Simulated scan of single mutants.
Amino acid sequence: MQDLSGALSKRLHLAQVWPLVAVGLLGLVLAAAAWITVSVWEERLAKARFNAVAGDYAAVLQNGLDGYLDKIRALRAFYDASEGVNRREFDLFTSQILSGHGSAMRLLWCPRVDRQERPVFESGVQRSGLTDFSIKDWAPTGNVRDATEREEYFPILYSSVSHARTATFGTDLHYERARSSAIRRARDGDTMATAQNIQLRNPIGGKRPGFIAFLPVYKPGTLHDSIVSRRRNLEGVIAGAFQTSTVFDAILAQAVLPPSVDLFIYPSNNDQNAPPLYARVVGRQTR
C-alpha cells in the first residue's frame, strides 16, 4: 500500500508539474516566434528604408544628369535653327546655357572631316586665328601627335573652354575606340550616345575619370530618316564631356537628401570586382 501511495503521489506531482512545463515551453516558443517575427519585420523595415533612400538618390542623380544632357540638346537645337555657327556664336550660346555649371561639364563641337577635305579644313582653321591648328591624335603616353590618315575625323573645333591651350583644339574624338563607337551609334540612330568609363584627355577639375555624351547634327535641309542618309548628311557631333565626381558632387550639392549616407556607384556591367565609378563616404573626400 505504501508503494501504491508513493506512485500515486508522484503521478499527482507530475500532473501538477507538466502543465507548468508546458506553459514554460509554450512561452519560449512564443518568445522565439515573436523574436523571429520582430527580426523579420525589422529587416524588412531596414530594407524598405534602404530602398527608399537609394531610390531618392537614384532619382536625384538621374534628374540632375537629365538637366545637364538637356544642355546638349539645346545646343543641337541652336545648330538646327542656324545656317552656320561660328566660334563667337558658339561661345556666346554655351556661356549662357552653362552659366553656373561650367565646372561640371564642357560642350564641344566636332565637325565631320573626311580624308580629302583635311588639308583644306586645317588651313582654313589656321587662317581663322588658330595658327598652329592641326587634327591630332592622343598617344598612349598622353602626348599629342598629328593624326594618322583615315577616312574621317571628328576634331574638336569649338569648346566651351575657350582658351586654346586648355581646349585641346584639333583632337580627333573618332580616334579612340570608345569615343568612336559612341559617335557611330549617335550618327546611325539620330540619338544621344555615351562613351562611358573613359579617361578625359583634358580633365575638368584636374581629375581624369569621366564620360562623354554625343549628339549628331545633320546638314541643314537634308534628310536623315535612314542610316544611309544619316551617314551621308552628317555635319558633325556635339559632345558633352563630364568629369564623373565633379558632376555628381554638383548634383548632390543641390539636393535635400539624408547626409549621413555612404554612396557608391558602380558601372552597369557584370564585373563584381570593378571599382566604383563614384564614391562618397561620410567624412571623406569624394573620388
Score class of each variant (00 low, 15 high):
Thr148Arg: 15
Val38Asn: 15
Leu30Lys: 00
Arg230Leu: 01
Thr168His: 15
Ser95Tyr: 12
Arg280Lys: 15
Gly24Met: 03
Ala239Ser: 01
Ala104Gln: 10
Glu235Trp: 05
Leu215Met: 05
Val113Glu: 13
Ser245Gln: 07
Pro220Met: 02
Val144Leu: 10
Gly206Trp: 10
Gly100His: 09
Val17Ile: 15
Ile135Gln: 02
Asn197Lys: 14
Ala147Lys: 08
Leu26His: 01
Arg231Trp: 06
Ser9Trp: 12
Pro220Val: 00
Asp132Tyr: 06
Leu75His: 04
Asn197Thr: 12
Ala33Thr: 10
Glu151Ile: 05
Val125Met: 11
Arg185Tyr: 13
Ser5Asp: 07
Thr148Ile: 09
Ser123Ile: 07
Arg49Val: 14
Glu43Pro: 02
Pro220Trp: 02
Thr148Leu: 13
Ser95Thr: 11
Ile265Thr: 07
Met105Glu: 11
Ala74Gly: 08
Asp56Cys: 03
Leu20Val: 10
Pro216Tyr: 01
Phe214Glu: 05
Leu20Ile: 07
Ala193Val: 09
Gly24Phe: 05
Val85Arg: 07
Phe248Glu: 05
Pro259Phe: 12
Gly170Ser: 07
Ala279Cys: 00
Thr171Ser: 15
Ser134Phe: 00
Asp262His: 06
Pro140Ile: 02
Arg232His: 07
Trp18Phe: 06
Arg284Tyr: 14
Val125Glu: 05
Ser229Met: 02
Gln199Pro: 04
Leu257Gln: 09
Ala58Thr: 03
Arg201Pro: 03
Val40Asn: 15
Pro19Cys: 13
Ser123Arg: 14
Asn269Leu: 00
Lys207Asp: 08
Lys219Tyr: 08
Leu75Ala: 07
Leu65Phe: 14
Trp138Ser: 11
Asn233Arg: 01
Val21Gly: 11
Lys47Asn: 07
His163Asn: 02
